[in-house]
């Protein structure tokens, strides 16, 4: 066990020494390609250039339009005038029927 630990220690010491002797990298400047790649990825995730006030206005307009549609529907079904207007729309057909009656009766009654 002690021998195994000693072997591992010697191996790690030698690897650490190799690391210390390795040529140093020059990281003083960011490579241009890396800089551009990072900036491009940030531009992709950044919010779009639309004016900030546009989105709330669009949302407000959509909400108002929905409200108007719902209110109109509610008024139509709730108010009796609406249904009366519908029935009034069918009167012309009845009127024609009524108008036909006297005419037909007139023809029937004439000898």
């Amino acid at each position: 066990m002690k021998n195994e630990q000693d072997q591992l220690d010697r191996l790690l010491r030698s690897a650490a020494e190799a690391r210390r002797n390795a040529p140093a990298h020059d990281d003083s400047t960011v490579p241009w390609t890396l800089e551009q790649r990072v900036l491009a990825s940030l531009r992709r995730v950044a919010p779009s250039a639309e004016p900030g006030w546009l989105l709330p206005v669009i949302r407000g307009a959509f909400a108002s339009a929905s409200l108007i549609v719902m209110a109109s529907a509610a008024l139509y079904f709730a108010h009796p005038m609406g249904q009366q207007a519908d029935s009034a729309a069918q009167i012309p057909a009845n009127e024609m029927a009524f108008a036909d009656i006297p005419v037909s009766q007139m023809f029937v009654s004439t000898p």
């Binding site: 010491r13 190799a18 690391r19 002797n21």
Partner: peptide
């Protein structure tokens, strides 16, 4: 290990 074996040990 001597210096010659550093690359191998790494």
């Amino acid at each position: 290990l001597d210096a010659a074996h550093q690359a191998g040990s790494s």
